[in-house]
Amino acid sequence: MTDRLPHEKGFHVSWDQLHRDARALAWRLDGHGPENGGWRGVVAITRGGMAPAMIVARELDIRTVDTISVKSYEHQDQHEVRVLKSPDAELMGDGSGILVVDDLVDSGKTVGLVREMFPRAHFATVYAKPQGRPQVHTFVTEVSQDTWIFFPWDMALQYVQPYRGRD
């Protein structure tokens, strides 16, 4: 047993790393769409899925991009999942040919809710935790359930004093 807080077992992701991992996700998805290997559109689960979805859309030359806004966290605490904004209904249909992208599947609650809405969509995340992993079709990197991922949009560079002494 440890006395660590959730954020103390952290996995820090830089912009460069996120870009490489999102491109790796695109490579895994390339040619696997239902329309001659292609996808009709990309839907980002906001806010975390926006950057990876943009990279995937660029890499796979997908021009139709939309968002679904889902709120499930208040800082590092997970709450009831609710949809704040839905994607275009005509585009989505039942989700056939649509690639839904998020940064991370954690408990699986967010992706689970979106899967109920669009059961035929393909769900892809950059990172996956074991509890939520069954909710996604494709992911790049698995991390332990007790790891907190620090994404680049949540961090800022700042000076850190050395452990011993001063500069």
Rank of each mutant, 00 (worst) to 15 (best):
T138L: 05
E142L: 06
A22P: 01
G95L: 04
G33Q: 00
R40C: 02
W39S: 01
V114Y: 03
V111R: 01
L91C: 08
V140T: 07
H122T: 15
V65C: 04
H79K: 15
P52L: 02
S69I: 12
M117W: 09
H79G: 07
S144C: 05
H122M: 13
G41T: 01
V101W: 11
W15K: 06
G97C: 03
G48N: 06
G38V: 04
W153Q: 10
G48H: 07
V160N: 03
V101L: 08
A51S: 11
T64D: 12
I68W: 07
G31K: 01
W153P: 00
G97Y: 00
A89L: 08
D77R: 13
Q145S: 10
Y127V: 05
S86I: 12
D21A: 07
L29N: 00
A57R: 01
T2N: 14
A26H: 00
P162H: 09
R23N: 07
M1H: 10
L99E: 01
H7I: 14
A53K: 03
G37M: 05
V136W: 05
P130I: 12
P34N: 08
D102M: 05
G97T: 02
R23H: 10
R166V: 12
W27M: 09
D16L: 14
K71R: 15
K71E: 14
L25P: 00
R164F: 13
Y163F: 12
K9C: 06
I98S: 05
R40M: 02
K85L: 15
K129T: 09
V65M: 10
H137S: 11
P52H: 01
R40K: 14
G38Q: 12
R4M: 15
A22S: 15
L104W: 02
T141R: 15
W153I: 04
D3I: 13
G112F: 06
A22V: 06
G97N: 01
S86G: 08
V160T: 07
Q76L: 13
S72P: 00
L84D: 10
S86P: 00
W27R: 11
P119I: 04
A26R: 00
T147A: 12
W153N: 10
R20F: 09
S72M: 14
R120E: 11
R47W: 03
V13C: 09
Q158R: 10
V143H: 06
Y73H: 11
R4F: 14
F151R: 09
T64I: 15
W39D: 00
L5R: 12
R166Q: 11
V111W: 04
V101K: 04
K71Y: 08
S69L: 14
M155S: 06
S96K: 13
D21I: 04
K85W: 09
P134W: 15
L104H: 03
S14M: 05
A26T: 02
M117N: 07
I55H: 04
H32C: 10
F123A: 07
L113G: 03
D103E: 14
F139P: 00
G31I: 01
H19K: 07
H75R: 10
E59K: 03
M92K: 09
H12F: 13
D61H: 12
L91F: 10
Q145D: 15
H75Y: 08
V126H: 02
S72F: 13
E35R: 01
M117D: 07
D77V: 15
K71P: 00
D21S: 05
A44I: 05
E8K: 03
G165A: 15
E59Q: 08
Q135D: 06
D106M: 08
Y163E: 14
T2W: 10
F151V: 03
E142T: 13
L104I: 15
